[in-house]
Design a protein around this nucleic acid. Structure first.
Lengths: 157, 157
DNA sequence: TTGCTGAGTATAGAAAAGTAAACTCATGTC
DNA sequence: GACATGAGTTTACTTTTCTATACTCAGCAA
C-alpha cells in the first residue's frame, strides 16, 4: 500500500520543451542558425556533428516548426535546400541567452567570452533577466511557483 | 587542401553550459530542487529516474557547485544528506525560465500550464526576457552577435 | 558520359541511458 | 540481537543514442 501524493511531474513545460530541444546537437544547431549558418554543409563543418544525426535533428526542427526550409541556388549549381528560423524558433532565444550567460559567467576562457551579444542600434550588451508583469526585475529567489490550471497529482499505485 | 575559415565553435559558452546541464535528468533534478525537493528519495519518486543515474547526476551537480549537500535529521532517524541549490545554481534560473516559458506557450495542456510563476510579494506573473544594459527590452531579432575577446577561428587542416 | 558537388541515406560498431533487482552500510527502534 | 530505513552502489541486461564511414542521388559542367 503506497499512497503517492506527489505532483505529477510528467505534465511540465520544462520537460516538454526538453523533449524538443533536449537532445544533443539541437540547441547547437539553433545557435549556428542565429550566427548565420543555413546549409547542411555549414552545420556539419562548424559543429562536427555526424551527418545522420544532423539530418535527423534538422528534420525534427522543421516538423516542430522551429526551422523552415527554403531553397538557395549558387550560380552553376542546382537549387538546394537551406534552413531558416521561424518565429517559434526565435521564441527559444531567451532560454538560449540564459545558457549563454551562465557559460560566460562560469565557464568562459580567462580572456572572456568568444561572442558578445549587443542591442542592435544602441550597441549596449544584452542579457536574459526575469521580470514580472509590473516591470519589476525579479531575483531568482523571489520567484514563487504555484499550481496552475493543469496541475495534477500522481495517481496512487 | 582545405582552408577552413570557420569560427571555432568548441569555444562557446552555450556548448560549455550544455556540457554541465545538457544530459538527461539534470535540468529536471534542478527543477525539483526549485519546487522543494531535497532528498534522494524525493527525486527518485517524483522523477522516476533510475537510481544509478540519479546518484551520478547529483554527484556531478555537487562537484560543479550547482548543488551543495547538507544534512537533515528526522526524529528517530540518523542524519542523512540532502541537496540544496547554491548561488551558482540559482544563476541557471533565467535559462530554465526560458525553457518553461516556451513550453507554456507551445506545448502546454489545453487548460494551461501545470505551474505558474509569480513575483513573491507583488504576485504578478514573471517571465524571462532580454534587456540591454540601458534598460531597453530587446526583441530577439535585434540582438547582434559580435566576436568577443576569446573569439578564435578554426585551424586549417 | 564521366566526373563533381551538396545533401542527404544506410549501416555497423561504440557509448550512454534505461530497467530491474540484489546488495551494502550506518544507525535508530523493538 | 534482529529488524527497519534511507541513501546509495553494484551487476546484468536491453534499448537508444552517438559516431564514423561508405554509399546514393540529382543536376551542372566539361
Amino acid at each position: 500500500m503506497d499512497t503517492r501524493l506527489d505532483r505529477d511531474a510528467s505534465n511540465c513545460s520544462i520537460a516538454r520543451t526538453l523533449e524538443v530541444v533536449g537532445e544533443k546537437w539541437t540547441i547547437l544547431i539553433l545557435r549556428e542558425v542565429w550566427y548565420g549558418s543555413s546549409r547542411f554543409g555549414d552545420f556539419e563543418r562548424v559543429l562536427g556533428c555526424p551527418r545522420n544525426l544532423l539530418a535527423a535533428r534538422l528534420r525534427m526542427l522543421v516538423e516542430e516548426g522551429i526551422l523552415a526550409t527554403e531553397t538557395y541556388k549558387e550560380p552553376g549549381s542546382r537549387s538546394r535546400p537551406k534552413y531558416v528560423i521561424t518565429p517559434k524558433g526565435m521564441d527559444l532565444v531567451p532560454a538560449v541567452m540564459g545558457l549563454l550567460q551562465w557559460g560566460d559567467r562560469y565557464r568562459a576562457d580567462p580572456e572572456g567570452p568568444a561572442m558578445l551579444t549587443r542591442h542592435r542600434g544602441c550597441g549596449a550588451p544584452v542579457d536574459a533577466q526575469i521580470r514580472c508583469e509590473r516591470g519589476h526585475a525579479v531575483h531568482a529567489e523571489d520567484i514563487e511557483s504555484v499550481p496552475g490550471p493543469a496541475f495534477r497529482m500522481k495517481a496512487a499505485e
